Computed example of a mutant assay.
Amino acid sequence: MSSNNRTLVPEARRGLKEFKNEVAQELGVPFKEYNGNLSSRQCGSVGGEMVKRMVEEYESRI
């Protein structure tokens, strides 16, 4: 099974990883290299917050 989770701009990979870790830390989610022990809710909260912030940033620019 192939993954559709690929970074469209490879140069952005590092920034996205740092952003994910920053959001996770603020939400109290212990992200590490291996995250198999985290619940779907924890991982989803980080992803959801990332999307929320990216949308807010985009909307503030237009």
Results as ranks from 00 to 15, higher is better:
L38S: 03
P10T: 03
V29E: 00
S3M: 08
L27M: 10
V23P: 02
P10K: 07
M50P: 02
E49Q: 10
R6Y: 13
L38N: 03
V46F: 03
L16V: 05
P10S: 06
Q42R: 07
C43W: 07
K17C: 06
L38P: 04
L8F: 12
N21D: 13
K32S: 13
N21Y: 13
E56W: 02
R53S: 06
V55M: 13
F31D: 04
R61G: 08
K20L: 07
V51A: 11
S2K: 11
K17M: 04
G48D: 03
K52A: 11
V9A: 08
G47T: 04
S45Y: 10
L27T: 05
F19S: 02
K32R: 12
V51D: 04
S39H: 02
Q42D: 11
G28D: 01
E33A: 10
N4C: 10
S45A: 09
Y34V: 06
V9T: 12
G28K: 01
T7N: 10
Q42T: 07
I62C: 14
N4G: 12
K32T: 05
N4Y: 09
A12Y: 12
N5A: 12
A24V: 03
A24I: 07
F31M: 09
V9W: 09
Y58M: 07
C43Q: 13
E11M: 09
I62W: 12
Q25G: 07
R61D: 14
E59D: 02
M1K: 15
R41D: 11
N37Q: 11
E49F: 01
M50V: 07
E22P: 04
A12M: 11
N35I: 01
M50N: 03
E18C: 07
R13P: 00
S40R: 08
Y58R: 13
P10Q: 09
K17T: 13
G15D: 11
G15S: 14
P30R: 05
V51K: 09
P10R: 06
S40N: 10
E56D: 09
E49W: 01
N4F: 14
K20Y: 05
V55I: 15
E57Q: 15
R14L: 02
F19N: 04
E22T: 15
N37T: 11
E59N: 08
I62V: 15
F19D: 01
G44H: 05
S39A: 05
V55N: 09
E22I: 06
